[in-house]
Amino acid sequence: MTASLTSAIDLRQIAPPQRHSLIFNSFEALLPGATMELINDHDPQPLNEQFQMRSPGLFSWSYLEKGPQVWRVQIGKSAKVASAASGGCCGGGCGG
């Protein structure tokens, strides 16, 4: 089964103070293996850095369009999220 696009969020239509909470809540709601698309009027690279701090190794980030007027990014939720969330490691001894 391939990952499917589950939602697209046009950030240009959302007030800046509400954007990041919407994005992270939408990401949390994704099933492992699913993706969402962000549409913005500037490069959301600082958001990528926040994802790296919050969810290292548990997401993918792919530019679909790189400006200059529209930026589109596909963010995927790794299947690893399911095992990480359930403590699916081996009690700390797996190095993982």
Rank of each mutant, 00 (worst) to 15 (best):
I39N: 08
L38K: 07
S83G: 10
L38E: 08
P56I: 03
A29M: 00
T2D: 11
W71V: 05
A15S: 13
E28P: 00
I75H: 05
A84Q: 15
A79I: 11
L30P: 07
S26G: 07
V81C: 14
F27R: 08
V70M: 06
I9Y: 14
N48Y: 13
Q50S: 11
R54C: 05
H42C: 00
E65D: 13
L11W: 01
E28H: 03
Q52H: 11
G92F: 04
P46L: 02
L22G: 03
V81S: 14
P17Q: 01
I75V: 15
S7D: 09
S55A: 12
S21G: 10
L5S: 03
G76E: 05
A29R: 06
L5T: 01
K77H: 10
C89S: 13
Q18S: 11
R19F: 00
L22F: 02
Q13A: 14
V81T: 15
G87E: 12
S78G: 06
K77R: 13
A82L: 14
W61I: 04
P68M: 04
E37Q: 14
L31R: 15
A15W: 06
C94M: 11
L5N: 02
Q45V: 07
A79Q: 14
T35D: 07
K77W: 10
M53I: 08
S4N: 10
R19Q: 04
D43E: 00
Q13E: 15
L38F: 10
G67I: 05
A34V: 03
P32M: 04
R12I: 01
N48D: 05
W61Q: 07
S60Q: 08
C94H: 11
G95I: 12
E49V: 03
M36Y: 09
A8L: 09
A84P: 03
A34M: 08
Q18H: 04
A82F: 11
D10L: 02
M53K: 14
L47G: 02
Q18G: 05
Q52R: 12
I14L: 03
I14R: 00
G92N: 12
D41V: 06
T2V: 10
E49D: 04
K66N: 09
C89Q: 13
H20R: 10
R54D: 08
E65G: 02
R72C: 08
G67M: 05
Q74S: 15
S7F: 00
T6M: 13
S21Y: 04
G91A: 13
D10M: 01
R54F: 03
Q69G: 06
I39K: 11
N40K: 09
Q52V: 03
L11N: 02
Q50R: 13
W71K: 09
W71M: 04
Y63Q: 04
T2M: 10
M36L: 15
